[in-house]
């Protein structure tokens, strides 16, 4: 080991592991990391998928391992944390801004459970108008819904709120 590895340096490296479906967001931005443990000569990272059936889970686990081993020069294990489950409220404020700039409307902060009304009047990421409606709760990936903006006439995607 050439350098002292701290929990903080592991988290810093994790910021370099991007989501394959939304390449502007890291696994930290998305709130996918639930714990980091330092063991002798090894790092153990615990993570959770956004949606249970997310096809990218094993790819993301592999990316975390590869990036961390490269940057920190230490053995890395990555496991799925069964004690925690992902909610859209785990996404950081910075992540929501990055999503917005990427052209995907971020999920609203959830106060309780998801209900139909929360998917109405989602601000359009292109023009900011709230004159929008939900076109379909399913989009190009499991985590996205499709909306339509009546002001600028464009279809846009939203990262769905998940309770």
């Amino acid at each position: 080991m050439s350098q002292t590895i701290t929990i903080a340096s592991v988290y810093e490296s994790l910021e370099h592991v991007m989501d394959p479906e939304i390449p502007v967001l890291s696994v930290i931005d998305l709130g996918m990391i639930t714990g980091v443990e330092l063991e002798e000569g090894a790092v153990h990272v615990k993570m959770i998928p956004t949606f249970a059936a997310c096809p990218a889970v094993s790819y993301i686990q592999q990316r975390i391992k590869t990036v961390l081993e490269q940057e920190l020069d230490i053995a890395v294990t990555v496991t799925v944390d069964k004690q925690a489950h992902w909610q859209s409220n785990r996404m950081t404020a910075a992540a929501k801004e990055k999503l917005q700039n990427f052209g995907i409307a971020p999920p609203q902060l959830l106060a309780g459970e998801v209900h139909a009304e929360i998917l109405l009047a989602v601000p359009c990421p292109h023009c900011g108008s709230k004159e929008t409606y939900l076109r379909s709760p399913f989009g190009s990936t499991l985590c996205r819904a499709i909306h339509f903006c009546k002001s600028c006439g464009q279809v846009f995607e939203q990262f769905k709120p998940l309770e």
Partner: peptide
């Protein structure tokens, strides 16, 4: 098209839940 996508997405969810 939206229904094509919806049923395909729900297929993915269901099979993921079966796997779990």
């Amino acid at each position: 098209m939206e229904e094509d996508i919806a049923f395909s997405s729900m297929a993915q969810d269901k099979i993921g839940h079966a796997w779990a």
